[in-house]
Design a protein around this nucleic acid. Structure first.
Lengths: 233, 233
DNA sequence: CGCGGTCTTGATGGTGTTCAACAACTGTGG
DNA sequence: CCACAGTTGTTGAACACCATCAAGACCGCG
């Protein structure tokens, strides 16, 4: 296997400002793997053995409830760490990670975590900030789920998706990976039927443009108005 | 101010196995404060300056949404760390902490965190495990909120409360602090009316016994059956 | 070309909110 | 010590939201 090149990770937020030696140390312990669209990087409940960094592609983080319902916890974008339960002492992965498109990831053995954290504290720090951001996002979702109507939740979710994984195109911002009505339903706790109706209505109002496995937000501000709408003062 | 005594923290999970010297170091940087029932330890959005450990009492962690809705994120019990956003690099507190009963907490300046983590890694490790457990719990709540009916969510919430903060009494397990229908509603994303109806029904079935600001689970197994009940196969 | 996956749209009904009124309890101040 | 106000809890009735059921259109792929 050819040695991994520093340029792969040099410019990522997690490794910003490291020396060439440090990058080489990190890469010397890493291996890379390709995951075809639809394949699983790790499964919920599996023993936590490695932590990862997504080099290219997009992953879906899916939690399956005891009664078989699927919930999409979040999407992972290029350059993000994932599967870092080792930083929180988790013995197993709490969710599955599935490639939404063909993806490439770096992986390290969990045993490397302590060494990494003590020799390059800035990397550990960055990882904990990532965790903090995700915790906040998860808590925000609890608040949304507890207080908002379906319409507002779907609007918020679309806005989050374009913020985190949006790609600017001619007439708006496109979600950068294939996403179905069912996927959006699993992020918002509703059904694909309701999502379909909402997207149709919003398309009529000129807020979004959608097609098969594709959503473009054409009027983020208008969508925000719906997301923030309060039924009662 | 009299020096804080080692016995205050010696037996807590976070500090298990530390030497007397280590405990003294930790206590030398701490101060303690009393919070009357209903008072705020810190407020959502305030600058994150300190982290805390609850010595006695119970706290409610409350998030207020932009449109004014309150959601109870969790309760803090005796011996638990809280307000440890510093470990995740959070600049402000993401929620408020309110004393549910008269409470006493130790506090440390955030600046002490790095020193603590490097000199006594086991404490840092314990804190990260606490964060991991809370993250998992929060994610479980997202799944519940997205997939379960109100009745199941309330049942799950009661079970979680008695597991985390239950006190065994003659005929069941009592939630160890005053809790209203409204509080339970804010933990489950419903209204106090619905909670009241459910508790009345469950009382008739002999699953719980409730009074003003008080709930006793008398048949945890029966409640679990409701919590796990699936409407559709 | 046929099949499976995706999407749309209508009709119907149930769950749980909302609105409303009142009862029970606690603490306070006269 | 009692009256009163504020908080907490109960219960009924009406309706809104959205899940569910149902049927079919559309699209891409093997």
């Amino acid at each position: 296997m050819p040695t991994l090149d520093r340029s792969l990770i040099r410019d990522l937020p997690s490794f910003r400002g490291l020396e060439a030696d440090d990058l080489d140390l990190i890469l010397s312990r890493a291996w890379s793997a390709h995951y075809p669209a639809g394949s699983e990087v790790f499964g919920q409940g599996e023993e936590n053995r490695s932590f990862f960094l997504l080099l290219s592609g997009h992953l879906r983080v899916v939690k399956t409830s005891p009664d078989g319902h699927q919930v999409i916890a979040r999407y992972i974008n290029e350059g993000e760490l994932f599967g870092i339960g080792v930083a929180l002492g988790m013995p197993t992965y709490p969710a599955s990670a599935v490639a939404a498109v063909d993806s490439v990831a770096l992986a390290w053995p969990n045993g490397f975590w302590n060494e990494l954290q003590s020799r390059l504290p800035s990397v550990g720090h960055a990882a904990y900030e990532t965790i903090g951001a995700r915790l906040q996002e998860t808590q925000a979702r609890v608040v949304e789920a507890s207080t908002e109507q379906v319409e507002q939740r779907v609007a918020h979710t679309l806005l989050r998706l374009v913020n985190q994984s949006g790609r600017k195109i001619a007439d708006g911002i496109e979600i950068d990976f294939p996403i179905t009505r069912q996927d959006i339903a699993e992020m918002t706790g509703t059904t694909l039927h309701t999502v379909s109706r909402l997207l149709s209505a919003w398309e009529d109002e000129g807020l979004v443009r959608s097609a098969r496995k594709k959503v473009v937000v054409t009027d983020a501000h208008g969508l925000l108005l719906i997301a923030e709408a309060r039924k009662k003062g």
